[in-house]
Design a protein around this nucleic acid. Structure first.
Length: 551
RNA sequence: GGCCCGUUGGUCAAGCGGCUAAGACACCGCCCUUUCACGGCGGUAACAGGAGUUCGAUUCUCCUACGGGUCACCA
């Protein structure tokens, strides 16, 4: 068989030889130890949480080592592709504040190793495919779908492994004339890899799993589809070689095809990259674990978390915590440090799949938000509201000074309040500060002595001094309480419950319900100061008239 | 079904031949407290099962069970 002639026959229009591309994409000139990684998603219309999980790993390893993080788009399957696919991915990544050094970025394509969209690399793939054919390592296959399914049926009946191999590989030894006849006939072909089993089990190492022991591949897998576009396996090998990728981070579902990839690297005569197969993020479903899926789980798409109002720092913390087992400990010791200061390492990566834990994320998010200063919190919350709650946004941003004052309550200091885990909760938490959202529930007032409640509501306005400090402020309430026969504090009251109607806390509760419209609120003294004397008086009257109506 | 990978409390996990088997989240109790949110203290709860190696196995080996993945002209 004249393989050279076959190669010419199959790929007559290939312009360059392989050396041309080797020269065009030279070894990168990077410092010792610098890693080159890529995130390589398909543009199917959304960014998967598991994708960001990998992005974090890629980005950390690249940037911590002084290397390169690139984004390559694997758009070799036009059937699954979505129009906005690439933008959704680049936007999603930039929402995490992650810098893409090379490839598809929010500002367009950049870098010297492109194009970075596989659909635009056909010429490159064909060049290397031609070489494989010329060396007898790949061959055209004209089997149609019918033929292949007949083959599978037969294999199933015989209970042998399915696939195009050995005696089933009908087109493996087609003569040059037969190929020519097919081509003259206008038949489409796929290019198949000629697997040559050696009978030995290949051995290779995965950075997180260590030695992996699998049987070698003996199937003549498709390398290039009949439309001339390669399948993932071939594109992966060619691209990661030419882009000089040093570490391939991908989901563990790729472990199964690793033997093929190893064979391909060997067939091309290339050094293979290091592999890091990540564990899968799963969720509980009907008592069983399963992979997060786009169709069933809204939280599979990162957009969901932004809609809910999780700050990106919280998502990053959560993902890094899953990715590196010692991250949580580091974070506890360095609560205010940027995640970029964390010494991320491949050694600390987990190799077993984990369940997505909303409780944990929520807790992390609560901590992240509580640690923000008021201005940062304002910026973070309005970033959310601008996109996902326009009505609240205009209300909250109408007076930024007021908004920041609201967010300042209980913030800073050793033990900041942790009221909010998601920005989505902010309107419910702070709504009462705005007349438009003030929807009071006065009913708890009915549980107290009516005359006392009325008296407090009537008299407090005159007592209230906005300039009072915390202690003075509460002192006035105490005085009022005592004058009505309430104990000045809980301790006194507990010692002698019979002598008092209640304690000062009860009286402040009257005020709390009247002013905020609910039984719990952040510090009432601060709340009143933000509302102002006038508004406080107005609300006390409103509550008083409610009580009156209830007669 | 074949082949891979995995298995420490409900969840995430430390551990890398000898420990009363960490910690975090969740849950429960107590304390603090003008409500709430914090914070403090304490509690419930785990090495999948069985062989073997060893003076000694959570740690090493094998088997079983269970879970996950993969067997496309999808990635």
């Amino acid at each position: 068989m004249d393989y050279q002639a076959l190669a010419e026959l199959l790929y007559p229009s290939v312009q360059h030889d392989c050396d041309y591309y080797e020269a065009k994409y030279p070894e990168r000139n990077l410092p010792e130890g610098a890693k080159v990684l890529r995130f390589a998603p398909s543009p199917t219309g959304y960014l998967h949480l598991g994708g960001v999980y990998q992005v974090m790993c890629d980005e950390r390893l690249a940037h911590l080592s002084g290397g390169v993080f690139m984004l390559r788009i694997e758009d070799t399957d036009s059937k699954r592709e979505l129009a906005d696919g690439i933008r959704v991915i680049t936007d999603g990544i930039s929402k995490f504040g992650i810098q893409i050094d090379e490839g598809m970025t929010p500002d367009g394509e950049k870098g010297a190793y492109g194009p970075y969209r596989q659909s635009q690399r056909a010429e490159i793939y064909h060049t290397f495919a031609k070489k494989l054919v010329a060396e007898g390592k790949a061959y055209p296959c004209f089997c149609n779908e019918e033929r292949l399914s007949a083959m599978r049926a037969e294999q199933e009946a015989k209970k042998v492994n399915p696939g195009y191999y050995g005696e089933y590989a009908a087109c493996r030894d087609l003569s040059l004339e037969e190929v020519k006849a097919h081509l003259d006939n206008g038949d489409k072909f796929v290019l198949r890899f000629r697997a040559c089993p050696t009978g030995e089990r290949p051995e290779f190492t995965d950075c997180v799993r260590g030695r992996i022991d699998v049987p070698e591949n003996d199937v003549d897998m498709v390398l290039i589809k009949s439309d001339g576009i390669p399948v993932y396996h071939f594109a992966h090998v060619v691209d990661d070689h030419l882009m000089r990728t040093t570490h391939v981070v991908r989901g563990e579902e790729w472990l199964a095809t690793l033997p093929l990839h190893v064979q391909l690297f060997d067939a091309m005569g290339w050094k293979r990259p290091e592999y890091i197969h990540t564990a899968t993020i799963m969720k509980i479903d009907n008592g069983g674990k399963r992979k997060l899926s786009k169709r069933k789980d809204p939280e599979a798409a990162v957009e969901y978390f932004f809609t809910e109002g999780y700050p990106r720092e919280a998502l990053i913390d959560y993902l890094l915590m899953l990715l590196n087992s010692n991250y949580e400990e580091w974070r506890a010791a360095n609560p205010d440090a940027s995640y970029e200061a964390f010494p991320y390492s491949v050694e600390k990566m987990s190799n077993s799949g984990c369940l997505f834990d909303f409780n944990k994320l929520y807790d992390i998010s609560k901590n992240v938000i509580s640690r923000m200063d008021a201005k940062t919190a304002y910026a973070s919350s309005t970033l959310w509201s601008a996109n996902y709650d326009a009505e609240w946004h205009s209300l909250f941003t109408a007076d930024p000074e007021k908004a920041i004052a609201i967010l300042s309550i209980g913030r800073g200091g050793e033990k900041p309040r942790k009221d909010i885990g998601l920005w989505k909760e902010l309107p419910a938490y702070a709504g009462f500060f705005f007349e438009e959202r003030f929807d009071p529930d006065y009913s708890p007032l009915l549980g107290y002595d009516k005359a006392d409640v009325e008296k407090v509501l009537a008299e407090y306005s005159a007592l209230y001094q906005p300039e009072d400090d915390q202690t003075t402020w509460f002192g006035r309430i105490k005085e009022l309480a005592v004058s009505l026969g309430y104990a000045p504090d809980t301790k006194t009251w507990k010692k002698n419950k019979e002598s008092y109607k209640g304690h000062a806390g009860d009286v402040s509760m009257f005020l709390r319900v009247a002013v905020t419209g609910r039984t719990n609120s952040p510090d009432l003294c601060e709340v009143m100061r933000i509302l102002g004397k006038e508004k406080v008086a107005e609300r006390l009257e409103k509550a008083a008239s409610y009580i009156k109506e209830k007669e």
